[in-house]
C-alpha cells in the first residue's frame, strides 16, 4: 500500500472510532438512565451483603474469605441500603437495560482498537512516530485516555459508570483534532527529528491521557462527596463508588502519572540541550510544564497536609489539569516560543 492509502485509511479509522464511541456513549447513558444497578452493581451489592454479615459477626474470631476476588478491597457497606430491594424489584425492562453497560464497554474497546490502528496507519503514512503535530498528539492522547480507562475498569469494574464522562471528552478531542487541528501526514522539520523528542512527546501524551482520566474521576469524587454530605442519592450517586474510593482512584492515577510527567520534562530538557545548547529556556511551553509540575507537587503535598486532603486537594488537582490543558492548547495557539511547531493549519 502507498503512503497515501495509509493516510486515508488512518483518517477513516478515526471517523470509525468516533462512530463506535458515539454509540458507546449512548449505551453508557442508557445504562445509567434505565438500568438497575446493572451486573456490576449487583456484584458489588452482593458482596456488600456478604461483608456486612462478616462485619456483624465480627467477634474477633471471624475472617473474610480470601477468595472474594478483586472486589475484596471494596468496602461497600455504605452501598448496602436498598441493594436487595433494588435487585428484587427490578422489572424485566430494566434488566435488559443493564446489558447496555456491557455493550458500551465492548464498543469502547472496539473504539480503542480502531484508534490504535489509526495511529499505526498514520505512522506508516508519515514514516515516523505518529505524534509529531497537534492533530496527532490529540488522537494519541484520546487513545491513551481510552486505554487507561479500559485497563482501570478491568481492575475496578465499578468505575465503568464513568463511561459517559470519559467518552464525551474523548469524542470532543477527536472532533477538534479532525476538524481544527488536522494536517496531512508528512515528515517533520529537522528540529523535531530526535529520539529524545519521540520519547518526550510519547511520555507527555500518556501523561495527558492519565491526567484527564484522573480529572474525570476527581470531578466524580467531588460530586459524590457533595451528595454524601447532603445525604442526597440519585441515579448516578447510587452507581458510583463511594467518595473515598473515588478519591483514592484519582490519587492512584495522579501518583502514577507524576513521576512520568517528571520524566517527560527531563526528556524534553535533554532534547532541548541537544537542539539549542540549553536544557531549560523558559519558553512558554516549558514554563507551563513547570507550573503544571509544581501544582501537582502541591496536590501530593496537600494530601499529606492536615486540613488539605480531600476536597481541597481535589481542587488543586483540577487546577493542575487545567494548567496541563492550557499548555496543550492555549500555549500552542496564543504564545510563540521555541515550541511553536504545533503544526496548526492556516498559521
Amino acid at each position: 500500500m502507498s503512503q497515501q492509502t495509509f493516510a486515508q485509511l488512518s483518517n477513516g479509522l478515526v471517523y470509525g472510532a468516533m462512530g463506535v464511541l458515539t454509540i458507546a456513549m449512548f449505551a453508557y447513558a442508557a445504562e445509567l438512565a434505565f438500568g438497575t444497578r446493572s451486573r456490576v452493581g449487583r456484584g458489588v451489592a452482593a458482596l456488600a451483603a456478604r461483608e456486612s454479615k462478616v462485619l456483624v459477626a465480627a467477634g474477633g474470631a471471624v475472617a473474610a474469605g480470601a477468595a472474594n476476588g478483586p472486589l475484596t478491597a471494596v468496602p461497600v457497606a455504605r452501598h448496602l441500603d436498598g441493594a436487595e430491594a433494588v435487585r428484587q424489584a427490578a422489572p424485566e425492562r430494566q434488566r435488559r437495560a443493564d446489558q447496555f453497560g456491557g455493550v458500551a464497554f465492548s464498543l469502547t474497546r472496539l473504539g480503542l482498537l480502531l484508534m490504535v490502528l489509526s495511529m499505526v496507519g498514520r505512522g506508516l503514512a508519515a514514516r515516523r512516530a505518529p505524534w509529531g503535530n497537534m492533530y496527532e498528539f490529540s488522537v494519541a492522547s484520546a487513545m491513551v485516555v481510552l486505554a487507561v480507562f479500559v485497563a482501570v475498569t478491568r481492575r475496578r469494574p465499578e468505575l465503568r459508570y464513568l463511561g459517559t464522562f470519559v467518552i464525551v471528552p474523548v469524542l470532543l478531542t477527536l472532533g477538534a483534532a479532525i476538524t481544527f487541528l488536522y494536517v496531512p501526514a508528512g515528515p517533520l522539520v529537522p528540529a523535531l527529528k530526535s529520539y529524545w523528542l519521540v520519547i518526550h512527546v510519547a511520555a507527555a501524551i500518556v501523561c495527558g491521557g492519565v491526567f484527564s482520566l484522573g480529572g474525570v474521576v476527581t470531578v466524580m469524587y467531588l460530586l459524590q462527596d457533595r451528595w454524601e454530605r447532603r445525604g442526597v442519592t440519585n441515579r448516578l450517586s447510587r452507581r458510583l463508588p463511594p467518595s473515598d474510593q473515588l478519591d483514592q482512584s484519582a490519587y492512584r492515577l495522579f501518583a502514577f502519572v507524576f513521576p512520568l510527567w517528571t520524566f517527560a520534562i527531563v526528556a524534553g530538557a535533554i532534547w532541548a540541550e541537544n537542539a539549542w545548547g540549553r536544557y531549560w529556556n523558559w519558553d512558554p511551553k516549558e514554563t507551563w510544564a513547570f507550573i503544571t509540575w509544581v501544582v501537582f507537587a502541591g496536590y501530593l503535598h496537600a494530601r499529606a497536609t492536615a486540613g488539605w486532603s480531600g476536597r481541597k486537594a481535589a481542587a488543586i488537582a483540577l487546577l493542575g489539569l487545567s494548567c496541563f490543558v492550557f499548555n496543550y492548547f492555549g500555549v500552542n495557539i496564543w504564545f510563540t516560543g521555541l515550541h511553536s511547531y504545533g503544526g496548526l493549519p492556516n498559521k
Binding site: V295, G298, H301, A304, T305, A306, G307, W308
Partner: peptide, 13 residues
C-alpha cells in the same frame, strides 16, 4: 511546616 511549604509551592507556580 507542610502548610507553608504548600503555600510556597503555590507562589512558585
Amino acid at each position: 511546616s507542610m502548610r507553608v511549604a504548600l503555600l510556597l509551592l503555590f507562589m512558585l507556580a
